[in-house]
Design a protein around this nucleic acid. Structure first.
Lengths: 196, 196
DNA sequence: CAAGAATGTGAGCTAATGCTCACTTTCGCA
DNA sequence: TGCGAAAGTGAGCATTAGCTCACATTCTTG
């Protein structure tokens, strides 16, 4: 039977490998050549697979990117939850959150950068929106534990501040994670503790 | 004579009007329909001009965007210089800089947003790089007048913080400029004055 | 007014890219 | 071992968008 929709489930290990190869190929292209170079044909070729196969696992290009994003977000949410649900003191929680963000960005800086760029041209599925708001919720709870008066907007601002500073550092080619951590911490704590 | 390169100079008022119309058309499309909708054909049509004419004034699509950016940056540099070269007290200078950034963003929020997005897929001409570094330089000088120990990176961070918070607010549809100004000020001053 | 310069036109070329589909190969199982 | 299902193939279609060029129109100047 000819399939017009992507196959629902990979049943043989072979097909799972193909799927993984395509996702990793997409990541590799983003990392090495940027968002403009990420075409479906390129991803298939890099994965060592035909375009036909690619479209058996992904209904369209967006869904490949979404898979990548889901992978990243899921891992972040996981780490953030661990911190958020711990009984560490609030300021230590904040520090850990910052560390998570920075580690994440510096693990594969270019990939993180391009992924963020590409994200804006993507309409998120319900599942992805749920993931995003879960992350936002956990961050909000950590920020609130630090400053009970903080509004949701403040928490969002903290995330944004964290993100740009880290992005900029990565883009500049900074490798001294310590220095970046110091600046981000200063920005976040400065923002949250500023009075008058 | 058929021109293969864009005409150097517009000599008749008619041609100047055409040029302006094209730039404003591009701005309008970015504002109303986003970066994806900004095609050269669309810009020409919206300007009430043929694509042929468009290509007599702009060698390629990038150059249209560059013109728009130059217009924005030049006006910003102008305002920033006025503040930077005044003899206001340092903290007042900082406040004015923040106000300039916010006013700029909120004058045409969507345009500013899309322009920033589109900017990343643009390699800047020498002239544009010069403009950018002039702006950076002025900001650095204001930040230094406020805190002589601030490194160039710190000044860049200030700009970035200012930018994201304002962007996010615009994207969220916030219209209360006062509230945004308050948060941005808090973030910037918090960052610059944070101790320990 | 003539003539050339300046300005304007738009059909259509080219290249890129997302994606389809008719078909082949490989796998697992009775 | 043979057969149906799963997995894989790739030429090529459809669309889109940047851009060209041979030509038409309008302006300006001596």
């Amino acid at each position: 039977m000819t399939q017009h929709a992507p196959r629902k489930q990979a049943r043989q290990t072979r097909s799972i490998a193909t799927q993984t190869a395509i996702i990793e190929a997409a990541a590799h292209i983003l990392e090495q050549h940027g968002a403009a170079a990420l075409t479906t044909n390129a991803a298939a070729e890099r994965a060592g697979v035909s375009i036909g196969s690619l479209y058996q696992y992904f209904p369209n290009k967006q869904s490949i990117i979404a898979s990548l994003l889901r992978r990243e977000w899921a891992s972040m949410l996981d780490q953030i939850r661990t911190v958020s649900q711990s009984d560490l003191p609030p300021d230590e929680k904040l520090h850990r959150l910052i560390a998570i963000a920075i580690d994440h960005q510096f693990a594969r800086p270019r990939l993180a950068l391009e992924l963020e760029y590409v994200e804006s041209s993507l309409e998120l599925s319900e599942e992805m929106q749920h993931l995003a708001s879960s992350i936002a919720g956990e961050v909000r709870s950590v920020v609130r534990s630090f400053d009970p008066d903080a509004s949701p907007v403040i928490a969002a601002d903290v995330v944004s501040i964290c993100r740009v500073l880290t992005n900029d550092a990565a883009m500049r080619g900074e490798t001294d994670t310590q220095a970046v951590t110091r600046r981000v911490t200063r920005a976040v704590l400065g923002f949250l503790t500023y009075r008058e």
